[in-house]
Design a protein around this nucleic acid. Structure first.
Length: 534
RNA sequence: GGGUCCGUAGCUCAGCAAGGUAGAGCGUCAGCCUCUUAAGCUGAGGGUCGAGGGUUCAAAUCCCUCCGGACCCGCCA
């Protein structure tokens, strides 16, 4: 019996099929099946933010593979208030705490219209690089243009029921009293400090007081202003407890996966959507968070953010897609040091895709080929590209003499039997490795060597100074080793250790020549100066 | 208080969606140059798949219970 392969054989294909089946059961139009990703705009976008969009896009692609039209909505949460000045950001931003990020001037040279737009653009750039196609929407503009107005009215008219649902699901009683709408304060311009206490249905206005709110454990004092706000005027936003649902209905979203950090909100919003907005909520899938290696959640506002831009310094967008797509469940700890293995794994997948590596099991093969295609967002290269293990490139990059790194690596690759086409792809790969070496290779310390070994290195330096040719460089090692009575093998190890941080290396004479004799002497002297013999 | 994930070789992890001979990298060990295209290659060793039960012809994979670890939510988003 032949096995059935759904779509390209991946999780995304299976999910897309389930999604389509569900929509059929619900009897909704299949003309356009939308998925959604929310883009945080209140700090530097991290890998997790990108992951949300990439995964929701992959499901949209899966829908296309099944023969239906689909689209990813990338919705920027730029009506959110600034809750905290992100680490490394200008302190002047303190005065903008509580203001919608779309109302805060761009702190980075004013190249964008607002703080929020700047942050969003970083994420959109990464989406572009990763091959994600999307329809962009800004929360700020959506409210301004009245896109959610129908939903806002329904929610406000049923605020009591919404408050009960929130209490039932979360135990939070606040919204049985307060209205789920935050106006921007006319007095101070902040959004979270206001509390709406009465809704005037005929005028669709809320009465509010800027009374303050607790944000991240700190009390943000209100300005005391009292006023009224038209909920259709775009000068405020719905609480997230009900906004998600409003977006789903207004934009006709059929699928949205989300991180477990917002699972409670999704549960509430599902009920709001169903019971108040009369809209069957989108199908969901919950994924785990990315943690950094220390086991800490990668936070938008904590420093040291692992952003897509950091990834692109050492690895390709497709390798990042691999990280984001290969596994949907399970918390994963990541750090930039994992990038090489994803680069190599993508090369393996490419070999499988082009049939260079055999995979016996049909289902397994389909899955891996499919994963490769999704890494390329279903637009894979026409032919297999050159593969060079990342660690080889790192080794070569470590050894490369300054100023002619690319030439050196290219020449050496030929010596090793790789015959890369001299193209953009090769250049990129070399660049990744060079960046890697620059940022991660710790300088080698002279530790744990004996007095005798130390003298041998000094002797070698002396002999090298008088040498001129590659053969003479090579012979210097043996002369020094004989003269100090230590085996040549050991001296080679020491020299490679000092120069490369590895006990082995390329043939020594030509390598000295490539590095430049003076550079070698300088590095060896630095090495000797960095520690005492034992 | 509510919820999610993880536990597989000495270490880091993959495999689990859709059950079918336990995998990779690193490390270890043993070989491979009688003055280096060895930054390499070949091979070996190493696992009661956290524990117990269930379903099944068959379970690392599905279900239940327990143990251990991590994370998220409980203000806002």
């Amino acid at each position: 019996m032949p096995v059935e392969i759904i779509g390209r054989g991946t999780w995304y294909d299976k999910t897309a099929r389930e999604l389509i089946e569900r929509e059929k059961r619900l009897g909704r139009s299949l003309a356009l099946i939308r998925t959604e990703s929310g883009l945080g705009a209140s700090g530097l976008p991290h890998i997790g933010s990108l992951g949300d969009a990439v995964r929701n896009y992959a499901v949209a692609l899966g829908v296309k593979v099944q023969g239906y039209n689909s689209e990813l909505i990338a919705f920027s949460d730029d009506m959110d208030g600034l809750r905290k000045v992100p680490a490394g950001f200008p302190r002047e931003l303190e005065r903008w705490l509580g203001h919608p990020v779309s109302h805060i001037p761009d702190p980075f040279g004013g190249c964008h219209e607002s703080f929020g737009e700047h942050m969003t653009s970083l994420l959109l750039d990464a989406l572009e690089a990763c091959g994600v196609e999307y329809t962009f929407m800004s929360g700020y503009r959506a409210y301004r243009d009245g896109l959610l107005n129908d939903e806002i009215l329904t929610i406000m008219e049923n605020a009591g029921r919404a408050g009960r649902i929130i209490r039932e699901e979360l135990g939070q009683e606040k919204y049985e009293e307060a209205l789920p709408y935050f106006p921007i304060c006319e007095g101070c311009g902040r959004i979270y400090t206001t509390k709406s206490y009465k809704y005037l249905e005929d005028e669709h206005k809320v009465l509010y007081r800027c009374s303050g709110m607790e944000i991240k454990g700190a009390w943000m004092e209100g300005c005391g202003y009292e006023g009224e706000a038209d909920v259709l005027a775009g000068r405020g936003k719905l609480s997230w407890k009900v906004e998600f649902a409003s977006r789903w209905r207004a934009l006709d979203i059929r699928f949205e996966s989300y991180g477990k950090d917002i699972s409670d909100s999704v549960r509430v919003n599902d009920r709001i959507s169903r019971e108040i907005l009369n809209f069957e909520p989108p199908m969901h899938a919950q994924y785990e968070m990315f943690l950094d290696k220390g086991g800490r959640k990668i936070s938008k506002s904590a420093g040291n953010v692992f952003t897509p831009q950091v990834w692109f310094r050492y690895g390709s967008p497709q390798s990042l897609n691999l990280l984001l797509l290969k596994r949907f469940v399970g918390t994963r700890s990541i750090s930039p040091e994992d990038i090489p293995s994803y680069m190599d794994e993508l090369d393996d997948l490419e070999d499988i895709y082009f049939g260079k590596i055999e995979v016996a099991d049909e289902r397994e093969r389909a899955k891996l080929k499919g994963l490769y295609e999704y890494c390329w967002m279903l637009k894979p290269p026409k032919e297999r590209r050159i593969h060079i293990p990342y660690n080889i490139l790192v080794s070569l990059a470590t050894a490369a003499p300054r100023g002619r790194e690319f030439e050196y690596v290219r020449e050496k690759l030929k010596d090793y039997g790789y015959h890369p086409r001299d193209d953009e792809e090769l250049k990129k790969r070399i660049e990744y490795a060079l960046n890697w070496v620059e940022d991660f290779k710790a300088p080698v310390k002279c530790a744990g060597i004996s007095q005798r070994e130390r003298e041998a290195i000094e002797e070698f330096i002396a002999i090298l100074k008088a040498s001129e040719t590659e053969d003479e460089y090579q012979n210097s090692v043996f002369s020094a080793s004989r003269s100090k009575g230590i085996p040549p093998k050991r001296l080679f190890e020491l020299l490679y250790q000092a120069l490369l941080g590895s006990p082995h290396g390329p043939r020594f004479g030509p390598y000295v020549s490539a590095l430049g004799k003076e550079n070698v002497i300088k590095r060896l002297e630095e090495f000797l100066a960095s520690g005492e013999p034992v």
